[in-house]
Amino acid sequence: MIKIYNRKTKTYEEEQVAGLNYLKWCYESPIGKSITELFIKRKLFSKVYGYYCDSPLSKGKVNEFIEEFNIDTNLSIKKQAEFTSFNDFFYRKLTDEARPIDMDKNALVSPGDGRLSVFENIDLNNIVQVKGLTYSLKELISDDKVANEYEGGTCILLRLCPTDYHRFHFIDYGTCSETKKIDGKYYSVNPIALEKVPKLFCQNKREWSLFKSENFGDILHIEVGATCVGTIIQSYTPNKKVEKGAEKGYFKFGGSTTILFLKKGVAKVHQDIVHQTSLGYETKITMGETIGVKL
């Protein structure tokens, strides 16, 4: 059972996990772990399943998924009957009213929907993955010079599960560099997997870029793929100025992760989120929601 913190109700909720039994089998049973290592973590598995989710054959899954996980399709620009495949539904665009963005220049906002963990005053070589497991930023992006700029800074980790809105956005005005891509595996990013696979983020496929923001300095954006996420789409134009809240990209089917690194002394994340992270709980967040302030 995965519990997440709802900051609006100030209560803990049990997360609805898509494919829970499958995840437990893959990462907790001896046979499942062997098959995950031999096949499921590899690109071919996610690529084949990605082709299926892009095809009209997968359209039948849409209504079933919406009903099982109580997805509010009234927030989507497309109507339920208009989706042409499961991925067409999965990375659906929402109406502007669905995700209001705090446009105050001093407001630090979430880049997307998901479950948020925040780590302050980070040690570059020991960034927390889950309790007892850490990873290195230098290893994550394979660039020591860039990584060194974030010593003592803030790590904002947003985990998207399959039921979430799967587009991610810029949190400020500014310009973003071209994306650097690093090949890797396709482990799940669900906590069940994070607790079993050391340095999971450093093993999975990932992409990173530097966003020169107007109010929060140089922000390191990292997108991490996962099982069945055969594609990370970067929809922004490199080195072209964007507005706060503009779309950066989106994930195709699967749970995924967006990680932001801010330099030391740039911003302060709200204490309720930091406190819940220290207790081992992720906080439920929506895109554009205020999560902190500029210092």
Results as ranks from 00 to 15, higher is better:
I171P: 01
E178M: 08
F168R: 04
D183M: 03
D102R: 01
G60C: 15
K105D: 10
E149M: 11
T286F: 12
G245D: 04
L200C: 13
T257F: 07
A267N: 08
V266M: 11
W25N: 14
K145P: 00
G174S: 09
K199L: 08
K252T: 12
Y135V: 08
K145L: 05
W25T: 14
C53F: 05
I222A: 00
F65H: 00
I291F: 13
Q129R: 06
N74E: 13
L20C: 03
S256Q: 12
K105R: 09
L108W: 01
Q80K: 14
D102Q: 03
I259F: 11
R167A: 11
I122G: 13
D72K: 03
Y135P: 06
L194S: 13
E223R: 11
K181I: 03
Y187F: 15
I141V: 06
F251D: 13
I273A: 07
A81I: 09
L137F: 08
K78R: 14
C228R: 09
E28G: 03
L262S: 00
S142F: 02
K240R: 13
L75V: 04
S85P: 04
A246G: 06
K24Q: 15
F83S: 07
S278W: 01
G225W: 14
G50A: 11
K93P: 05
I219T: 07
K263Y: 02
V48H: 13
A18K: 06
V266N: 05
F119W: 07
F65R: 12
E97N: 10
S188D: 12
F170T: 10
Q129N: 08
V224F: 03
I101A: 12
L210F: 00
P198H: 10
W208V: 01
G265W: 02
D96N: 14
K264S: 10
K268S: 10
S76K: 04
T95V: 08
Y186N: 15
S29C: 10
S209F: 04
S117H: 03
G280R: 04
H166T: 09
K138H: 10
E37G: 13
D144L: 04
I31M: 13
E15M: 14
I101F: 09
F86S: 07
D113N: 10
D172H: 02
Y49W: 13
I66N: 02
Y281F: 15
